[in-house]
C-alpha cells in the first residue's frame, strides 16, 4: 500500500492570546496532540462543533497554519521542512475550498483573473480554451469568465472556487465547510460535484464540516473532533450506526432524519 496523501502525527497548535499574564499567557490550545491520515483517493470527513479546532487542523495540511509541535507529512513531504519555495510547490498538489465563496474570491477580479492567477502563481500561462474546459468541469458555462463575484450566486461562486482548486490538478483538496454558507437547495449540488471529483479523478479529500449528515454521505471515513482532540474515528456508516463517544452521539442525534437528495 502506498504512502497516505496526508499523515499527521501528534500535532498540536497553541495560539498565543494577546497580552495578559498567568493563565492567559499559556494561550489557547486549539489542537491537542492529534494524529490522523488520509489515504490516496479517500475522502476523510472531519466533524466537530464550532471551535473544536477542525479548521486549524485542516490548515496544517498545506502549511497555512504551522503546528506548535508534531509532524505533518503531505504528499510524502515533511511540511515543516519545506521552506517557502517547497511550500508553494506543495500547494500545487494540495488545493483548498473555503467556506464562503463570496469572501474567498477577490471581489475586484473576474472569474478569468481569479483562475489565471492560480497558473501565474506557478509561472504558467493558460489559454481561454483551458479555462472554459475548467469551468465546464464544474458545470459552469464559458460566459462566467467575464463575471465578477457580485454578478453570480453563491452556488455558482462555490463552483468557481472548486474550479480554482482543480486548476492545477491537485491530489488532495481541503474543503473547509464548503457548503455551510450556501443555500440548502444548492448544497447537494456542490457536494455531488465534490463526490464526482473524488470518484472520477481520484482526488483525495479532507472534508471539514459541522454537519454529520453531509459527512456521512460524502466521506469514506469520519474523524470526530472535540475541544482540539479526535475523540472517535471510523468508517462513516459505522460511526453513524453506533456512535461510541458522547460527542459523536450528540452530533448524530442532532442530525435530521431526512436525508439529502443524492
Amino acid at each position: 500500500m502506498s504512502e497516505p496523501i496526508l499523515e499527521m502525527t501528534d500535532v498540536s497548535k497553541r495560539y498565543r492570546t494577546a497580552g495578559g499574564f498567568g493563565r492567559g499567557r499559556k494561550g489557547f490550545l486549539a489542537v491537542d496532540g492529534v494524529s490522523l491520515h488520509v489515504e490516496r483517493g479517500e475522502a476523510l470527513g472531519l466533524v466537530g462543533e464550532s471551535g473544536s479546532g477542525k479548521s486549524t487542523l485542516a490548515r496544517m495540511a498545506n502549511g497555512l497554519v504551522v503546528p506548535t509541535s508534531g509532524t505533518v507529512r503531505t504528499d510524502g513531504q515533511d511540511v515543516a521542512r519545506l521552506g517557502r519555495r517547497g511550500l508553494r510547490r506543495l500547494r500545487r498538489n494540495v488545493a483548498m475550498v473555503f467556506q464562503d465563496p463570496l469572501a474567498s474570491l477577490n471581489p475586484l477580479q473576474t472569474v478569468r483573473q481569479t483562475l489565471e492567477n492560480v497558473f501565474r502563481a506557478h509561472g504558467e500561462t493558460t489559454s481561454t480554451a483551458e479555462l472554459v474546459a475548467l469551468l465546464e468541469s464544474v458545470g459552469l458555462g464559458a460566459d462566467y469568465l467575464g463575471r465578477y463575484p457580485h454578478e453570480a450566486s453563491g452556488g455558482q461562486l462555490q463552483r468557481v472556487a472548486v474550479a480554482r482548486a482543480l486548476a492545477l490538478k491537485p491530489d488532495l483538496i481541503i474543503a473547509d465547510e464548503p457548503t455551510s454558507a450556501l443555500d440548502v437547495s444548492v448544497r447537494a449540488q456542490i457536494l455531488n460535484l465534490l463526490a464526482d471529483l473524488q470518484r472520477d479523478q481520484g482526488i483525495s479529500f479532507l472534508h471539514v464540516s459541522h454537519d454529520l449528515a453531509v459527512i456521512r454521505l460524502y466521506s469514506d471515513r469520519v474523524a470526530v473532533m472535540q475541544r482540539g482532540r479526535i475523540v472517535e474515528t471510523g468508517p462513516s456508516d459505522e460511526i453513524f450506526r453506533s456512535p461510541q463517544h458522547p460527542c459523536t452521539r450528540a452530533l448524530v442525534e442532532a442530525t435530521p432524519e431526512a436525508e439529502l437528495p443524492a
Binding site: 500547494r91 474567498s104 502563481a121 480554482r164
Partner: peptide, 20 residues
C-alpha cells in the same frame, strides 16, 4: 480577508499576493 488566504493556498508568491 479570506481571498488573500485563498490566494496563499494556491501557492501564490508574496509579490503576486501584494500586487494582485
Amino acid at each position: 480577508r479570506a481571498f488573500v488566504e485563498a490566494a496563499r493556498a494556491t501557492g501564490a508568491p508574496p509579490w503576486q499576493i501584494i500586487r494582485r
